[in-house]
Computed example of a mutant assay.
Amino acid sequence: MDNAQDKLKFKFGLVGRNISYSFSRNYFAEKFGKENLKHSYVNFDIESIDELLNVIKITPNLKGLNVTIPYKEEVIPLLDDLNKRARKIGAVNTIRFKENKLIGYNTDYYGFKNSLKPYLKKHHKSALILGTGGASKAIAYALKKLKIKFDYVSRSNKKGVKFQYSDLNNDIISNYKIIINCTPIGTFPDVDQCPNIPYDSINEKHILYDLIYNPERTKFLSYGEKKGATVINGLKMLELQAEKSWQIWNKS
């Protein structure tokens, strides 16, 4: 076998739990096929983040990883370093292997920011973030960069959370013209579920953004669409963050 050719065969993958539905695996398989690359992309479906270092140890030619729910925060202590932006965000969705070190990055913020920007109008000055997990941290960082004020909504009263779902009313919904679902509520196969917010208060000035991409139209987005809101699912964000991850893995 030609050694130079063999060196081009790297392995990439996704780390998460219950990730058989994975967008990333299909996306990169198609990308590698189109670009005639010999690489492979696999799912590392692990029950605990403690399994990750052993997975890395026993997997040859591993060059980069994506990280998804529920490990975007839990993975940080296992890394050798974080890039500046990932450190500010406090969540990692991309790991680069460099000189036997694991370096964490966050490309979620980039995907979200650049998929939302084309839809923004002057009245989009404030946002509600539904959920407080690792994904929501990247969303909050992107909103700061876009100079959009935001508040968190959670099921429980915790530090940094302004509203619980039971607090939400017409006035609050009217004052936040962007509502972003960062929870897994409504993901396939639980497509009949949606965040518990007063949808009757949504109007044509609202943007409803769901990080979920399967199904294409969640119940959350369908309710928004019926009220005339602009609705965006998570597919474009995922495509953008995947390409950003690819750039990071291939940096010299």
Rank of each mutant, 00 (worst) to 15 (best):
M1C: 15
A4I: 07
K7H: 07
G13M: 01
N26C: 13
F32N: 07
K34M: 15
K38V: 07
Y41A: 08
F44M: 11
E47Q: 08
D50E: 13
E51V: 00
L52E: 07
N54V: 10
N54S: 12
V55G: 15
K63C: 07
P70K: 04
D80T: 05
I89D: 02
N93S: 01
E99Q: 12
E99L: 12
N106L: 02
D108R: 03
G111H: 12
N114S: 13
N114M: 10
L116M: 09
Y119R: 10
Y119K: 06
S126D: 09
L130V: 01
G131L: 05
G134D: 14
A135V: 02
S136A: 06
A138V: 00
I139L: 13
K145L: 13
K145F: 11
F150A: 09
D151Y: 08
Y152M: 00
K158W: 08
K159N: 12
G160M: 04
V161A: 05
F163H: 03
L168E: 10
D171Y: 07
I173P: 01
I173A: 10
S174W: 07
I180P: 02
C182R: 14
T183W: 01
P184T: 00
T187K: 13
D190G: 07
Y199W: 05
N203Y: 05
E204Q: 08
E204W: 09
E204A: 13
L208Q: 14
Y209F: 13
P215Y: 11
F220R: 03
K227H: 11
T230K: 14
V231G: 10
G234H: 08
E239Q: 13
L240T: 03
W246T: 10
Q247K: 14
K251L: 15
